[in-house]
């Protein structure tokens, strides 16, 4: 049953998934390549270093763009079936809410794992090519920055997921998913304005940590709402 549900969810979210693949791969060819091609490293250093820089740069932009597709997927997964009312068909078939949710959550979490896994693999290849030098990260900073990117993606996907569990069509949840990092940023600035916390130096750390907390919290809230809801 779960296999059929998962296949159905993959098929229903074909657009965000195709976008995810495109956003995962295209950055290696466009911004990464352009940056590296224009850099002296391509001419001055060994070919391995140049390739390491290309992969390192490309993977950074790939991870950044892929978070947008994760946000889109998070906002789309539940509400898309309400939008075309096929949720009503599923509602009178035997799968439980938990099974339906498990299938959708597997797709969202699985897609994020694939993105992070592929990114990590590319980074490892880049490091291996560069011989553990800093070359792969000369344009983008080290790997810690990437985890921050993931935090933003997680927050966006979580907020989209919560909205998706409540709303009748996927447009507003996807929009909210994209806006949520900015909303969190705005809210944190408001807190800073009112209370003086967090300090200027620690603001980025607090922002990314907040994103890292908001994502799972909204995801869990969305799950609970969906499980408690009776209507399709």
């Amino acid at each position: 049953m779960l296999k059929a549900l998962f296949w159905k969810d993959v098929r229903m979210n074909r657009l965000p998934l195709v976008a995810a693949w495109a956003l995962l791969l295209v950055p290696y060819f466009i911004p990464g390549a352009m940056l590296v091609m224009n850099a002296p490293i391509w001419e001055d250093g060994p070919a391995e270093s140049a390739w390491a820089a290309l992969l390192g740069t490309g993977s950074f932009f790939s991870l950044m763009c892929s978070q947008a597709s994760i946000a889109m997927l998070g906002g789309n997964l539940i509400a898309v079936e309400r939008g075309d009312r096929s949720a009503e068909f599923l509602a009178y078939l035997p799968p439980s809410r938990g099974q339906i949710l498990l299938s959708k959550a597997s797709l969202l979490i699985g897609a994020q794992i694939v993105i992070i896994g592929l990114n990590g693999l590319v980074v490892m290849i880049a490091l291996w090519l560069a011989g553990n030098s800093e070359t792969p990260f000369i344009f983008t900073g080290d790997f810690v920055d990437r985890s921050r990117l993931v935090m933003v993606g997680v927050a966006a996907a979580g907020c989209g997921w919560l909205a998706s569990s409540m709303l009748q069509s996927s447009g507003p949840p996807v929009a909210l998913a994209f806006l949520s990092p900015m909303i969190i940023f705005g809210c944190l600035n408001l807190v800073k304005y009112l209370s003086g916390w967090p300090a200027y130096d620690s603001f980025p750390d607090v922002y990314f940590a907040t994103c890292g907390m908001v994502g799972p919290a909204t995801f869990v809230a969305g799950c609970l709402y969906y499980l408690r809801r009776v209507e399709p």
């Binding site: 049953m1 096929s86 035997p94």
Partner: peptide, 26 residues
Amino acid sequence: YVPEAHHIYRWMTVAEVTRFAEAMYE
């Protein structure tokens, strides 16, 4: 259950619908 308005997945073929439904029932 047969509803008044049918909201079966429009992108599925008839054969896919029956396979999908088959997977849902014990």
